[in-house]
Amino acid sequence: MKAKHQRLILALAALVALVGAALLAASALRDEAAYFYAPADVRTKGVEAGKAIRLGGMVVKGSLKHAPDGVTIHFDVTDGKATVPASFKGIAPDLFREGSGVVAEGAFDRSGTFVATNLLAKHDERYMPRELEGMNYNETTHQMKAEQ
């Protein structure tokens, strides 16, 4: 075997081992490195009241209500599997709206409502002109269809 081939095999073996180790570490970190809890995670793992976490999901359409004081809002956060009620007092980012993504920082109170101290808007991977808003997006074909 030529020295060149030995070096090639050595380098490739080291690379495969490294990538394998990194993938293992990444999958072990899967839960730890999660940036936020989804409502389903909250239900399965249980988060005690008062513990500071981030809660992420979609704002349920029709759930957004403004309290009489004018600065507090109430809304529900869902990930399709579970839904959690949340409240926030302050100015929400421009992109915070019903049917769109949100990441809320805060903690649960004793009644199970998530009291957010900060709101971040999370948008999805779709970009389109305004004329296309209100059209249906097909996840599998990536095509837009007009709403019936």
Binding site: Y35, F36, D124
Partner: peptide, 21 residues
Amino acid sequence: WWNSLHQGPSITMRGSSIDMA
């Protein structure tokens, strides 16, 4: 892999979710 604030990939093998315009 992870829940993130950054959105998922827009351009994948199946196409682009960024409108041509």
